[in-house]
């Protein structure tokens, strides 16, 4: 298992946002987390990426418990993610944003960076090439030297994905990657995610766009009020009565 949670729980005061959730992500698959608003999907991603501490339970990445690790340690284990509201370095250029994404695997420490100028310069070149490769992959090569904040929203999202890929992740977490995108941009995104999957990168995503989710996922986990209520292939999920009830219940409110 690449990513695994065991009885993972997170409380905010009296509210149990994630309640005893067990789920696994196998290497190479594309897995989606869906559920009505407030089901705890983003909280779950925040727990797995180390941005929030768990109240109880365990998280394993490649068999190692990371429940007490900070986000930079989890990133070093090969996990990258994007956010629903993109979190870019706005005043830096598009290329610099992706170069910073290489930080996780670059050997350059602060002291060694200052001392080993030659090796450092070589690595810097390598990182620049890697950044250019990722930009080409997501189709942003011609915007490399523009400041990140000058890009339209859809391209900022692509940039965030390029930055995540630059860290050479084994698993990529995407929080609502299709939100705010046009229909055309969404289908381009789906195609891009398929190519990422072909490269052998495991994907765990949260999204509300059902067609998009069912289209690209191998497996779907459904959360409702912090609990896992179903898990299966897209075809199984679409006919699962508990899932239909949860969504209808949410809409009836």
């Amino acid at each position: 298992m690449l990513v695994e949670t065991k009885a993972l729980t997170r409380r905010f005061g009296g509210l149990v946002a994630v309640d005893q959730v067990d789920f696994q992500v196998r290497r190479g698959q594309t897995k989606a987390l869906i559920g009505p608003n407030g089901a705890g999907k983003t909280t779950l991603l925040n727990l797995v990426s180390g941005l929030l501490p768990a109240s109880s339970g365990d998280i394993l990445i490649r068999g190692r418990s990371v429940v007490s690790c900070g986000p930079h340690e989890i990133a070093a284990l090969g996990l990258a993610r994007t956010f629903q509201n993109v979190q870019l370095f706005e005043n830096m250029t598009v290329k610099e944003n992706v170069m910073v994404g290489c930080h996780a695997w670059s050997k350059q420490g602060i002291a060694s960076g200052a001392l080993r100028w030659i090796g450092h310069w070589r690595e810097e070149k390598l990182i620049e090439q890697e950044a250019e490769r990722q930009l080409e992959f997501v189709g942003l090569s011609d915007l490399a030297d523009f400041p990140a904040h000058s890009l339209p929203f859809g391209k900022q999202r692509m940039l965030e994905i390029a930055r995540a890929l630059a860290s050479r992740p084994q698993v990529l977490l995407l929080d609502e990657p299709a939100s705010g995108l046009s229909t055309r941009e969404t289908s381009e995104l789906a195609e891009l995610l398929r190519q990422i999957s072909v490269r052998g990168i495991t994907i765990l995503l949260v999204d509300h766009d059902m067609q998009f989710v069912m289209d690209i996922s191998d497996e779907v986990v459904v959360l409702d009020q912090g609990r896992k209520i179903a898990e299966g292939t897209p075809a199984e999920i679409q006919v699962n009565p508990r899932v239909i009830a949860a969504y209808l219940g949410a809409e009836a409110k």
């Binding site: 005043n91 910073v100 930080h103 690595e123 995540a164």
Partner: peptide, 28 residues
């Protein structure tokens, strides 16, 4: 402007959440 550590420090200043998620140790 030109070194990775320098870029990482700038990144940390601009968006600490983004920096932490790409593996930058903010405390360091």
């Amino acid at each position: 402007r030109y070194t990775l550590v320098g870029q990482a420090m700038r990144a940390c200043a601009i968006n600490q959440l983004g920096a932490r998620i790409v593996g930058i140790n903010a405390r360091r």
